[in-house]
Design a protein around this nucleic acid. Structure first.
Lengths: 191, 191
DNA sequence: GTCATTATAGACTGTTTAGTCAATAATGTC
DNA sequence: GACATTATTGACTAAACAGTCTATAATGAC
């Protein structure tokens, strides 16, 4: 048998996520990644391939963890409307409290146009979040907490866009209260 | 007297904008900027300082030109509501037709967290766009095309966030029709 | 035309970059 | 405990990087 890995890939990827989230793909050097993960260069290259492959693996890892917490957030709420409101408040807390932002949103802005695999990750993520929001909208329409007006799919897509918009708004110096007020307007589409 | 400049700064900045818009600050090398602008290194450094200063100058130039076309777009419309709808359709065309996106939105995502001067540009831009949208909302409330509900300022801020959200949504592979449907939902907050 | 001054071109510099490699360490099998 | 196999370490490489410098060119003043 061969020498075993001294690390857990997911733990390493979580640390790579933090590095990439802070400085982007181009802004994060392999040395930064060594420091962030605690691994040596050869270990990183041996385990993940090259920098781009590590980035893609970090992106997938991030998407997986976000996906789980998204579904938990939405499913824990009592009504469809409450689920959507809770998601918005989570996004606002992230946008106001963390200057580095969402790795997937950053990837969409920095790399999706030039890297087809990043574009796929980003599109795949949209489909998942949109799907979860669609379920919440339909639940809300069924339980009466969301007014049934127009196509539910368009409503879900708009809500996803609104979360992206709130994240971007947070980058322009808006505080929590301002984000909340803007989110309140978005939620009015559910009345 | 001394030798005169062989170029127009604004023309050069417009070309730098295109370079930075395509690949971001970190992704654009000084060599890329030489090729994009047609200037030699020494001319770029002599005229603008260093790479960051050139980026900031490009950002200000971009903001200035966008500001003008924004006001033209909004003022040309007959009603407040039509002004806002026209702006949304312009944003959708940009988001669907141009994979490189808005330099200011990209700057917010890539650099605002790490560069205070970029953060100022981005915040300043938000204030201007928000102000223009506020005027359009108030105009709409006055001419009856926009229902007066809640704070007009929050409505304007939400509309700005919605444009950012639509741009971000365009990065995730949505086509024009999908963007239009999402924008339609956002505009429902004006009913 | 000469001079002072600034612009330009292109070579140059030291640093940082992504990625590789040879030497060594750690494992299960036999 | 020797072996085959894979992981790790840290030095190494070639290329790309931002920024500088020297030589030369272009101007208005005089």
């Amino acid at each position: 048998m061969a020498r075993p890995r001294s690390f857990d890939s997911d733990v390493v990827l979580d640390k790579a996520v933090e590095a990439f989230r802070g400085k982007g793909f181009d802004g994060t050097s392999v040395e930064d990644l060594e420091k962030a993960t605690g691994l040596g260069r050869a270990s990183l290259y041996g385990a993940f391939g090259d920098k781009r492959a590590l980035y893609l693996a970090a992106l997938r890892r991030y998407q997986g963890t976000k996906d789980i917490s998204l579904l938990q957030t939405l499913n824990a709420a009592k009504t469809g409307r409450a689920a959507i409101e809770k998601l918005f408040s989570v996004v606002i807390e992230e946008a106001a409290g963390d200057p580095c932002g969402c790795l997937l949103a950053n990837a969409a802005s920095e790399r999706a146009a030039h890297d087809a695999r990043v574009a796929r990750c980003v599109e795949d993520n949209r489909r998942r979040v949109e799907g979860a929001l669609l379920a919440a909208v339909l639940r809300g329409r069924a339980d009466g907490s969301v007014k049934a007006r127009g196509e539910a799919r368009a409503s879900a897509r708009f809500l996803f866009a609104a979360t992206l918009g709130l994240r971007a708004l947070g980058r322009t110096g808006c505080d929590r209260a301002e984000l909340r007020a803007a989110a309140g307007e978005a939620l009015r589409t559910l009345d």
